[in-house]
Design a binder for these strands. Sequence first.
DNA 1: AATAATTTTTAGATTTGTCTAAAAGTTAGA
DNA 2: TCTAACTTTTAGACAAATCTAAAAATTATT
Lengths: 227, 227
Amino acid sequence: MDSGSHNSISPTEENYLKAIFKITAGAGLASTNAIAQEMETSPASVSDMIKRLSRKHLIDYEKWKGVSLTKEGRILAITLIRRHRLWEVFLVEKLHFAWDEVHEIAEQLEHIASEKLIERLDEFLGTPKFDPHGDPIPDAEGIFAKRKQVLLSELNALETGVIVGVHEHSTAFLQYLDRMDLVLGAVLKVQEIFEYDGSMRIELENKTSLVLSSKVSQHLFVQRQKP
Amino acid sequence: MDSGSHNSISPTEENYLKAIFKITAGAGLASTNAIAQEMETSPASVSDMIKRLSRKHLIDYEKWKGVSLTKEGRILAITLIRRHRLWEVFLVEKLHFAWDEVHEIAEQLEHIASEKLIERLDEFLGTPKFDPHGDPIPDAEGIFAKRKQVLLSELNALETGVIVGVHEHSTAFLQYLDRMDLVLGAVLKVQEIFEYDGSMRIELENKTSLVLSSKVSQHLFVQRQKP
DNA sequence: AATAATTTTTAGATTTGTCTAAAAGTTAGA
DNA sequence: TCTAACTTTTAGACAAATCTAAAAATTATT
């Protein structure tokens, strides 16, 4: 009946594409088990869904091997990421949500199907390149902005950096950062690193001194600054 | 989490509630056939859905009689109307969509479930009382603003009115109005009424003179102005 | 009141997305 | 290499939402 691309795609199918994109980072293979874990569902359900997405030519699939996104599937996944991150910017900048509150809502908004809506939203927001968590927003052609970033844990003593992103998105982590004034754009200088547990003492611009566990410093992205 | 009720409600169920609200205008009975027509589906499907909505106590229902919204169902329907109309304001005022382009997109956006989102959006938009078509936006308590409006066709010769709403929402009608500069807020004076076909000649503020068919004047809401 | 026309409901099938349990295939260990 | 451990797929069921066809109930007509 239908020869190819223009079968409509359900929100559930879209979520699978996002999960596969996340696992494969755009290219490479995703296993049934990995997808099941990411989607919080059973491997059996994933097997079923793989057949459906394969039939729609959104993924390539051979039994017992993993799956990979087709060009079309990858474009769709990137579109979803674009929508999600643009909506997050809207929620934080225009509706004044906190950065730990926006994920769930953006998760719904990203499935609204209207190309014009997203292009208008992008324009309205001033074509932002990064979302409230510092993640890059792909442009309309699917290109992600790049940035020279390292984990805070990679800085040496006396180096200075600007917080540009988070590597973990849990509410607990984001709320912790808020409490510590560790927001995007904050400038910090590493004072000392404790060999014992890998924790580090840092100083903010307002001279506040904080000790951060290695877990924290391994989940914060910073841009090195010349001293 | 989200607002009050027990069982979660699907977008489809929400659309049925809206249809029933529209047919019954909030109170009264809706027939299976009328709902089927409004939803563009078969009476058999409506029968099934009636059972589901009844089980969830969103509608009252006795076999072979019509259907009416329960208090809970009515609140939900009004919430959906609130969401829909607020999103329409957003699309027109912030994203610069034309008033004939917004219905479909708002139809999707209205199903996003987050009370906080809607209250923030309302605030962001300045708590508008009417949507881009002049339809009233219920407040958070479900109260619709009222307004002394009449159909343009009810005006007599030499009376003056301000356009405050449309009684038909078709793209064709809205685009016709745009072309004629018959936008919300436009002030017009009835010059003469032709008995022959019920058409009327009106004059706009910029002295443009137009002849409107009775079909047009019967689908435009105006507020009378003292001369 | 009896029949015709209409409305509403039921019956049975289909699609999507899910589940559990079990079978089949692959990989790793002794 | 042969079995143990695992991953993946199939089989069979279920709920939501829909459909067509047919039966049941109501309303209208003569």
